[in-house]
Amino acid sequence: MAKVTIDLRVNGEPHEVAVHPWRTLAQALREDLGLTGTKIGCETGDCGACTVLIDGRSVTSCLTLAVEAAGREITTIEGVAPSGTDLDALQEAFVRLGAVQCGYCTSGMILSARYLLSHNPAPTELEIRQALSGNLCRCTGYQKIVEAIAEAAKANG
């Protein structure tokens, strides 16, 4: 089947990409745009490592077709920091509080947390844990991730 040309707006930058209709957004981001910060852990939408934001809402990019995301605002982990050297409050809290170990789930965790804080700026611990229900981590037991998100919420507040 022929490829289709789509416009992907990623982290504010426009990209024209030719993709097969079955290509996932995760593949397009990683392989066509070189944005490898989005991780693939299962390809079945269970682990959340591939979480990105589309029009501000969190989605698993391994279950989203690239063509579905055409023309919409996509935010990946590469677009979270305000500049190449600064970190945003979530990223800073993840680093400082030890919420990162192997790091493979980290991109997805931060984007899920960003979505949570965008519509619930002062979440309770339970709300944070529920918001991470689609993001698996095998290293941290989630404890420091939850603490970092709470801390970032406070800093934003």
């Binding site: 910060g37 990162v100 790091g103």
Partner: peptide, 11 residues
């Protein structure tokens, strides 16, 4: 804090 954490939180 882990010295590789900044690289990991920025992808």
């Amino acid at each position: 804090p882990r010295l590789d954490a900044p690289a990991k939180v920025t992808g």
